[in-house]
Simulated scan of single mutants.
Amino acid sequence: MMTNTFAQLGWFNAMLYLLARGLAAITGGRWTLFRYRFVAQPIGDTPLLPLRGTDIEIRLPAAHEALPPDYPRPANVIGQRYAQGARALAAWRKGRLAGFLWLIQSAYQEDEVRVRYLLASPHTSWDFDVWVRPEERLGWVFRKLWEAARLDLRQRDIQWSCSRISAFNAVSLRAHASMGAVNMGSATFLRCGAWQWMLASLPPYVHLSRHPASYPQLTFQEPSCPLFNKSARS
């Protein structure tokens, strides 16, 4: 198991993953460590899966719609996302929620750690919290969601969709890489009770937050911009 973790994540991320698990166990969850990779993938014209997943229905639920009883996110978190201007794409199969993903343009206030992401270009969008019901993960739900997202973003003249992915999630990293994602940088967050430390490859690079109203802002350039290439290599 240990060897497999190092093989999938690389030694650095694997060591942080083990540290994160150890901190959470020792402190009863009061200390948590997160490491993120930021990527951008091009929004192209080619459909992802023509004639596949025809029994999967994609919906764009409104903010006032009731959530399914087994929706895997708290109602207050969903309310905060809609308040920021985020939109959700939901996949339904056989009358049951099969998966969802969220989209937002311009800026996004993270709900896992204290940080704000800002997209500098109007031709970029943010996709986040992609979830697929476990028993559907070998089917077509994921690609149906991404095809719906591709069509939605193309209509809005979006050329790149940016994502925050856990550096401990090898499956998600591989999935994004298979769709042409490029690197935008990384950030590590350590939360100790009310305090939070951040180390990032993007300005401001280092940040200490002592209360919920204090958070850093990470600004992402469009991949074709020279500033993007410089920050991504940092």
Rank of each mutant, 00 (worst) to 15 (best):
P69V: 13
G53M: 08
Q8W: 11
R116H: 11
Y36V: 02
T219E: 07
F128T: 15
A88D: 08
N229Q: 15
L19Q: 12
G44R: 07
R37A: 08
T54P: 04
R30D: 02
W92F: 14
F100D: 04
M2N: 14
V206Q: 12
P72G: 05
H207N: 05
W197T: 11
I43L: 09
L16H: 14
Q196N: 02
W195K: 10
L173P: 02
I78S: 03
R164D: 07
L19E: 12
V39L: 13
S121A: 13
L97T: 00
P74S: 12
Y215V: 01
S106V: 13
P212A: 09
D152I: 05
R156P: 08
E65I: 09
G79T: 06
F34C: 03
N76C: 12
Q159S: 05
L208H: 09
W146L: 04
L18F: 11
V132I: 14
P72V: 14
V141E: 07
Q80V: 00
A75D: 14
S209M: 01
R114H: 01
Y108K: 08
V171W: 13
H211I: 05
L16V: 10
Y82Q: 04
A232E: 04
A75K: 13
W131I: 01
H64A: 10
A170G: 09
P204C: 10
F6N: 03
E57A: 14
V171G: 07
W195M: 07
L202Y: 03
E136K: 00
M1A: 10
A187G: 09
V182C: 04
W11L: 12
F189Y: 07
L151N: 10
